[in-house]
Design a protein around this nucleic acid. Structure first.
Lengths: 203, 203
DNA sequence: TCAATTTAATGCGAAATGGTATAAATATCA
DNA sequence: TGATATTTATACCATTTCGCATTAAATTGA
């Protein structure tokens, strides 16, 4: 605090932007875009509405930021899990099992995936959200395809598997796990599904 | 009109309930639950709001009726397609290709599946919608599992396939096709995915 | 110390929202 | 023919919603 240019003029913020953003994400993850009001967002983040607008923009902008952030977190996590395992089926299983856990273990219960489960509803009428959704879906396909490609290069890919054709099926399992988790389906069913997909889609 | 007890008292309705319901379904399919207002519903059906309420109930009730109706239509169509083909992979392909068409060919463009794409967003906070979603997902799993079971009884099931474990993967492809269609993804990708899943999941 | 800048807190405003009240229209029944 | 029942049409209502205006508070800069 003694440093001369350490802080800009004006009253300092009394909140941490990252922490507030995490709370905003949780609010949207719970209610989806439409059923989450700006009051809900203010409550969740502990900010008054003008502060919310000043720090993060309007409701739509906040939602887009939430999609961005969750999409990037997802890609990073899936990427790391896919890279970590030398065996393809094991890597796929790790990803699908991790997804299952994330989707079933929300702070207030099962909530699936923010993007797959909430952005879809808005997509037809909101082209910006639709584009973001398509980007995230495409990125996931690409991540998985790259892992299959890595297995091919390492000579570990089962014969007859085309990475580009097979990857969307793995991603499909992830999407379905998200939808099922949000529907309150049983953990055992989801885990069984994850395990079966890892085996079937790796050979 | 000459029959003595042919018609109840009172002014006759000037709309066909089934046709109006189909328009209401389209409205919700487009906007999802939250972004479709009662005014939108009135506009889509051509009914004044009191008539809408009198004939179909409040917004929530209309939405539930829509989910019911689409869910039943889906099950009937999928059931028929699964039954029609003696070869399992061909039957699966027919279902996945038909789903692709339905999801991509909405009256105003691609819109995915009403249930998978719009009910999920509402599910966390609305237990009635959540239960309906879970029912529809479970029914689809069961339909597909029954088709696998039929193949097993006919001695046409590939060795190592457990119908109950395999069916959710087929359903997962259907869910993913719905999400992808609503995200505006390319028809070629969806069709390729359908074909690949039919082959991979039938053996 | 006062001015400038930024944030927090409270209140405001226009429009939208879901549902209902009221009156007129259209049929059957007695 | 008038009473009863149902639907249509128009208007109304209380609440919610999103975004903004205003004032006070907290900091830096001159």
């Amino acid at each position: 605090m003694n440093t001369p240019a350490a802080r800009p003029r004006g009253r300092p913020r009394s909140f941490d932007a990252d922490a507030a953003m995490a709370q905003l994400i949780d609010a949207f993850w719970q209610g989806g875009y439409g059923a989450t009001s700006v009051d809900d967002l203010a409550r969740a983040s502990g900010l008054a509405r003008p502060s919310l607008y000043a720090a993060f923009g309007d409701k739509h902008a906040i939602y887009l930021s939430a999609l961005d952030r969750v999409g990037q977190g997802m890609a990073a996590q899936v990427g790391a899990l896919l890279d970590a395992e030398p065996d393809l089926a094991t890597a796929l299983r790790a990803v699908l099992r991790a997804a299952t856990d994330v989707y079933l273990d929300g702070p207030m219960g099962p909530r699936g995936c923010l993007i797959v489960c909430t952005a879809t509803a808005e997509s037809v009428e909101d082209p910006v959200i639709r584009a973001k959704l398509a980007d995230v879906l495409g990125a996931m396909d690409a991540l998985v395809a790259a892992r299959f490609e890595r297995a091919r290069v390492e000579g570990k890919l089962a014969p007859g598997i085309d990475p580009v054709r097979r990857a969307p099926l793995v991603a499909a399992t992830i999407h379905s796990l998200a939808v099922r988790a949000r529907a309150g389906m049983d953990r055992a069913l989801l885990e069984t599904m994850a395990d079966e997909a890892a085996v079937v889609l790796a050979r």
